[in-house]
Nucleic acid binder design. Structure first.
Length: 214
DNA sequence: CCATGATCATTA
DNA sequence: TAATGATCATGG
């Protein structure tokens, strides 16, 4: 199997800038919303394939890999801004307690993410084009890293002192601990599924990443 | 079953 | 519009 480095992935993805992602999804046999259901993750899945990945890299087994993320952009008063925050990775309460920022899973991921800006065309995202592809390398020496670490430490302290349930999406300046999970009711038990959380990059951070990459 | 892809819904 | 919390389809 071919090894796709991050640089290669970026190069591969850049070839698709301006392309209609929905058509590509059809080619790759990725379900979008055409079955009558909505697959919110289809853009991410197609991007993984466009990058040249043979299979899903869902959970990076170690820090040697990289992540692929897409972010929706839209126009607000003629300016292109991120529409939403971006999920980084799941929070593992045990790991969060034990690891400091620079040894954490979040940091390992954050610094290896390949960002893809994708145009958003309204609810259900029936089509999309790649706007831009970039990575986070340039930020490694930047001030924001310190502030992101501060956010991590804040969330970590809160977890240790007040527990997992005390966490909220309000925490953090650049990153936050939003809920994320399958949601709904478990049909087997008829009970609410347990709440899980993930790190999210706030819009300000996403915007910064793309501004700085010009 | 549940983590992962990320967007949708609701409220102010 | 922005922010936060909730949710869904998919694949292993």
């Amino acid at each position: 199997m071919k090894i796709i480095t991050r640089a290669t992935a970026i190069k591969n993805l850049k070839k698709y800038i301006g392309k209609d992602l929905r058509k590509l999804a059809l080619q790759f046999k990725i379900t979008t919303y055409e079955t009558g259901k909505q697959n919110k993750g289809w853009k991410g899945l197609i991007l993984e394939r466009l990058a040249g990945l043979q299979n899903n890299i869902s959970k990076a087994p170690n820090g040697l890999s990289y992540e692929l993320k897409s972010v929706s952009f839209r126009y607000v008063k003629d300016k292109l801004v991120p529409k939403e925050t971006m999920a980084i990775t799941m929070i593992n309460p045990q790991e969060l307690k034990d690891q400091e920022f620079f040894k954490s899973h979040v940091w390992a991921k954050l610094k290896s993410i390949v960002f893809c800006a994708v145009m958003w065309h309204g609810k259900n995202s029936d089509n999309a084009e790649i706007l831009k592809v970039t990575s986070l390398d340039f930020l490694e020496t930047d001030e924001v890293i310190k502030e992101i670490k501060a956010d991590y430490d804040f969330i970590r302290n809160k977890l240790i002192k007040k527990g997992f349930n005390a966490l909220t999406g309000k925490d953090g300046k650049w990153i936050q601990a939003r809920t994320k999970g399958t949601g709904g009711i478990n049909p087997n038990t008829n009970k609410r599924r347990p709440i899980t959380r993930a790190y999210y990059a706030r819009k300000a951070l996403v915007a910064k990443i793309f501004e700085d990459s010009k």
